[in-house]
Write a protein that binds this DNA or RNA. Structure first.
Length: 414
DNA sequence: GTCAG
DNA sequence: GCTTATGCGC
DNA sequence: CTGACCGCGCATAAGC
């Protein structure tokens, strides 16, 4: 009900409501989907290769997909392989979670890294010492591993499991908008001991929404529903301006059967970095996202807004209910608007997986580049000086420039 | 907590 | 009122 | 021994 977002669609966006060109050129709506699996992953749309000029014939382009060979070091871990040390990694996961709850993100991450390499170890560990040879496993974790091998668990984990405060904080943090700091404050200063206690406490807008949909947000989104959202969003956007380019990224793009939320990336040929930096009259991109959001509201797809700025929206959506059917579940949806010259790095980044991104970034660094969600730039290893962003007109460009063989999104799932 | 510098 | 810091999510 | 480990958009609190 709050939704402060009601900046109605009084926003004129001159070039926006542009001539509905002939008809569907670019982002042809969802159709294609249906045959998911492989195609679905490439989810999206037509890559407008060059900034301007494009938008012509049917989606041609896609660059010449001619990857050079260039063996990729394949450091990757095969996720399908068996974990011979599950007992150990399970315990370490608890420790990672605890550190995260306390706000020690780096320790939490360190445990996660150790978990990854231990999971990939091809046989059961026999000693902590053996574990310490693995990347990410130092003396401290080696000791833990030794303890787990000997006793089957860790005393520390046992104690933490009995710790009321930790357990409660862990629970509170399941509410979207409550992090380590707020959870600790609720417990220590406001006497909160359960989720329901929160109802009588001052909450931020985000936290109220987190409470309202506490159960729904933890439910996974079936791929079929994701397909529907993709079609809907493309449809609404094309209705506004058929030059919008849309990608549903995240695990959906990697072909997963279920997803945690809906991650939408958006760009428009007339929204470029230059047009965003200077304040020319044409930089009405500042209303672009607002326009999109108000349109989605009008159509009844959005139910709550968590945040809305010029380039990023976070909110809640729900498919229209059909009479005599079970109501649909509320879903978290994020929509980001990128200048077109930053679009493919953004798509690449948001497609993940996180692990894949870490790997590719380290690879980039080795080759004298720095890759972010905004750009791919050269970077001098010595001086650290970075160059200007390279022109990226497709995901393939990124692979090609890094000398890595193309990997479809499903192959980045690690 | 781990690793690189 | 305006500016900066912090929390949060990703 | 010390700092990096992604760091940025948005909402809200804190500071002036």
């Amino acid at each position: 009900m709050p939704s402060a977002t009601s900046k109605q669609s009084t926003l004129p966006a001159s070039w926006l409501l542009s001539p509905r060109k002939e008809q569907r050129t670019c982002p042809s709506p969802g159709r294609q989907q249906t045959s998911l699996k492989s195609t679905a992953a490439l989810s999206t749309v037509s890559p407008p290769s060059a900034v301007k000029s494009v938008r012509k014939g049917p989606k041609k382009d896609a660059k010449a997909p001619t990857p050079h060979k260039k063996h990729t070091p394949l450091i990757p871990i095969d996720p399908s392989k068996k974990n011979y040390n599950k007992r150990i990694t399970d315990v370490l996961s608890e420790l990672s979670k605890t550190e995260k709850n306390i706000g020690n993100q780096w320790k939490a991450q360190a445990y996660s890294k150790a978990i990854l390499s231990i999971s990939a170890y091809p046989k059961p560990l026999v000693s902590g010492k053996e574990a310490q040879d693995l990347p990410g496993v130092g003396g401290s974790i080696a000791k833990l591993v030794q303890e787990i091998i000997e006793t089957g668990t860790s005393e520390r984990v046992q104690n933490e499991a009995k710790d009321e405060r930790l357990q409660t904080i862990s629970m509170l943090m399941r509410v979207s908008g409550i992090g380590p700091s707020a959870a600790a404050k609720f417990y220590d200063e406001l006497g909160v001991r359960s989720i329901s206690d929160l109802l009588h406490r001052p909450l931020t807008r985000h936290q109220k929404i987190g409470m309202k949909y506490f159960n729904e947000f933890e439910k996974r989104i079936p791929r079929a529903e994701m397909d529907r959202w993709q079609a809907i969003i493309k449809d609404v956007l094309e209705d506004i301006d058929d030059r919008f380019v849309v990608t549903i990224a995240g695990s959906y793009r990697r072909g997963q059967d279920t997803c945690g939320d809906i991650d939408v990336l958006l760009t428009h040929p007339e929204f470029t970095t230059s047009s965003s930096s200077d304040e020319t009259p044409n930089s009405n991109h500042s209303v672009l996202l607002q326009l999109v959001i108000s349109r989605l509201h009008e159509k009844g797809y959005l139910t709550d807004d968590i945040s809305l700025g010029d380039v990023k929206y976070m909110g809640v959506c729900k498919l229209p209910d059909v009479p005599n059917t079970e109501a649909h579940i509320h879903r978290r949806i994020d929509i980001r608007l990128s200048p077109i010259d930053m679009y493919w790095p953004a798509v690449f980044h948001s497609t993940g997986s996180d692990q894949f991104n870490r790997w590719i970034r380290s690879l980039a660094a080795e080759q004298g580049y720095t890759l972010s969600e905004y750009s791919l730039r050269t970077k001098d290893k010595k001086s650290g000086a970075v160059g200007t962003p390279l022109r990226i007109s497709s995901e393939e460009d990124i692979f090609r420039l890094l000398g890595v063989e193309w990997r479809a999104p499903e192959q980045r799932d690690w």
